[in-house]
Amino acid sequence: MSKPRVSKQQRTNDRDASLIEAINAGETDRFYELVQRYQQALFNFGLRICGQAADAEDMVQDTFLNVFKYLGTFRFESQFKNWLYRIAMSVCIKRRRRSKFAPERELSLDEFLPGDEQIAAETPAWAREPLDRLLDEELARRIEDAILALPESYRPVLVLRDLEGFSTEETAQILNLTSGNVKVRLHRARLFVREQLKEYFNHEHRRSA
């Protein structure tokens, strides 16, 4: 089967195109520029998927070594960044057995439908306050814990969409899912994190009352 043709436009739209072409043309020392561009984002991605800094570091290393090895085969059929995260995900999956992951389970929409006690409730204060007044170190840690508590088929979807900023289509491509599947998993993952935050803010409210 022939490979899909890649238009010049697709290549031009990729901010990494000229650097990749230079590396593939023999300027391999410029590979470090690619590392500089993405190592922090990948490290944070690894932290949020694996939970441990040591696992995240290993994941970043394995990912870049694989990128170095396979970069010559990259044909700009997707953005380089999406290809990079696809490799990173594949490294995470291979390392999964050695890492501590939350147990896999299906999240049902019904478990998140608002309960009786909340029906008459006003929109809570934490949904109205300015973000910068809310997001302190402790809350950031709670959000990270909530993300790590997500079952593993939901966690990468939320991380890619809401923390890494990929679109639904890009996330689907990276995770090899349909767009519909990404939307369903994202919604349930957000509802799950929201439940954890609700508990946190209810507790905070009681503590400060």
Partner: peptide, 17 residues
């Protein structure tokens, strides 16, 4: 209320340092 808290959850995730 759910929509507002969900929107806030997304915004907090996007604002993570």
């Amino acid at each position: 209320a759910c929509c507002a808290t969900l929107a806030r959850t997304v915004a907090l995730c996007r604002g993570m340092p």
